[in-house]
């Protein structure tokens, strides 16, 4: 990882907001792929999840957050008997992506709530900093 400048309140919040964005994008991709089918078990879509990790900046004492990666869920796809489907295998089965729409919606709501929270905190902090700067 390249050497970064010491983290400030702004850079920390920016990175946390990006992390929430990644999380929201992952959940949205899962939702978009809900109901997609495949001929093989391996070919079916597996839901992805963002993994968050804490990063401590010793110089400023701030702890930010990064996405350390995306993982694919291990859930097995749903096997459905549908012989008329063009993607059905020789036994007449298709493999459906194991996406839990409700869980994904909750994930999106949670991410957007936390994003809002960060924006609010940033606004307050920015306002206080400006007030401090203006006083002479």
């Amino acid at each position: 990882m390249p050497e970064r400048a010491p983290s400030t309140l702004f850079s920390m919040t920016t990175r946390a907001m990006s992390a929430q964005m990644v999380r929201m994008n992952a959940a949205t991709s899962n939702l978009a792929n809900a109901g997609s089918v495949s001929t093989t078990d391996e070919g079916a879509y597996r839901p992805i999840r963002a993994v968050f990790a804490t990063e401590l900046d010793r110089a400023s004492g701030l702890t930010g957050v990064t996405t350390s990666g995306l993982v694919r869920a291990e859930t097995a796809p749903t096997r459905r008997h549908d012989p008329s489907h063009p993607l059905a295998d020789k036994d007449g089965y298709v493999f459906e992506a194991p996406v839990d729409e409700t869980a994904e919606m909750v994930e999106i709501m949670d991410a957007s709530r936390q994003y809002q929270n960060l924006v609010q905190a940033l606004q307050t902090a920015k306002q206080l900093m400006l007030e401090t700067l203006r006083s002479q």
Partner: peptide
Amino acid sequence: MGVIASNIANAATPGY
């Protein structure tokens, strides 16, 4: 303020 903002940023980090 920085410490509390760190907490808010890490609201979804497991084990934080």
